[in-house]
């Protein structure tokens, strides 16, 4: 039975009213800053007086900045290391975990999750890397192996930043949740056809995980291209500029050099780079094996 027009209108109105606070919050804290960034990117922006329109000057300054290339190289290096280590390894570990008894899986998940819950973990890693007093060099010395300079070595510093991500970032939990939702019958059918562990992984597990992997890869790319807090807390971007990433440079331009226009222009460039990477990635994952 069709509802009277008044009731329908009331329902629409009340739906909008209930949604409105969320929409306003999304607009002011989500969309507006993004839209405003495209304005500031073309302005000489001051904290205490009116902004001036400067056209593409900020983008020209970004192009001429001698640190930009280093910052992008560092960021891409971090992204590659980070995605390689924190993305691929947890998939494999999750699949191996699923072969264990249910009780063990539960305990392993708890153990895996504990460090994820601790943001103080980053600061702890800083001390673990201490060349003289840190745990890692202590272990190496205990094994009569040569100690390392860790964060103080420009060649090693970026790798040191990725390592905590392997433990502190917990995509493995999401993979385990996805793995648990795969129907047992698919594995049984594969076994009936004589499939071993690796064949089951190839024909059942990975195709079933594909949508989750695609989503997590997008998160990984976005997250690693925007890395900030790890180098900010652990190295301050050093030694030299060995761990200065793009977002760190954006931060330094905005709040160190007080050049908000150039900082925003650089943020827009990064936004475009990330969007391009995601579009390429989506094209790669478009085919649906299901």
């Amino acid at each position: 039975m069709a509802l009277p027009r008044f009731t329908l209108r009331y329902r629409h109105l009340s739906a909008w009213l209930f949604t409105l606070p969320g929409l306003l919050a999304q607009f002011f804290f989500g969309w507006f800053p993004v839209l405003f960034a495209f304005v500031v990117g073309f302005q000489r922006y001051y904290f205490v007086k009116d902004a001036e329109f400067v056209g593409a000057q900020n983008f020209r300054e970004v192009a001429a900045d001698p640190l930009i290339l280093t910052a992008f190289q560092n960021t891409l290096y971090y992204a590659l290391l980070s995605i390689g280590l924190t993305f691929a390894i947890p998939i494999f570990i999750s699949i191996l975990l699923m072969e264990m008894p249910r009780q063990t899986i539960r305990w392993m998940m708890v153990l895996w999750f504990i460090p994820v819950a601790s943001t103080a973990g980053i600061a702890i890693w800083k001390y673990m890397y201490n060349p003289r007093l840190g745990l890692l060099n202590g272990m190496l010395a205990g094994l009569n192996l040569p100690t390392l300079k860790w964060l103080d070595d420009p060649q090693l510093a970026m790798f040191c930043l990725v390592l905590p991500g392997l433990i502190l970032f917990g995509p493995g939990l999401i993979y385990i949740a996805a793995l648990q939702s795969i129907p047992e019958e698919l594995y049984e059918a594969a076994e009936l056809e004589g499939a071993g562990f690796f064949r089951k992984m190839r024909v059942v597990t990975l195709p079933r995980l594909r949508p989750v992997i695609a989503m997590m890869l997008i998160f990984s790319v976005i997250g690693s291209m925007q890395v900030f807090e790890l180098p900010f807390i652990m190295t301050g971007g050093g030694p030299g500029y060995a761990t200065t990433t793009v977002v760190m440079h954006v931060y330094n331009l905005a709040f160190g050099a007080y050049n908000l226009g150039k900082a925003t222009a650089l943020a827009i460039v990064l936004f475009v780079v990330i969007m391009t990477l995601i579009l390429i990635q989506r094209r790669f994952f478009r085919e649906n094996l299901d």
């Binding site: 300079k149 070595d153 420009p154 971007g237 030694p239």
Partner: peptide, 13 residues
């Protein structure tokens, strides 16, 4: 920051 980065690079590399 720029000056300190110069000194830290001089020490570590």
């Amino acid at each position: 920051r720029a000056v300190r980065a110069m000194y830290s690079e001089a020490i570590t590399s």
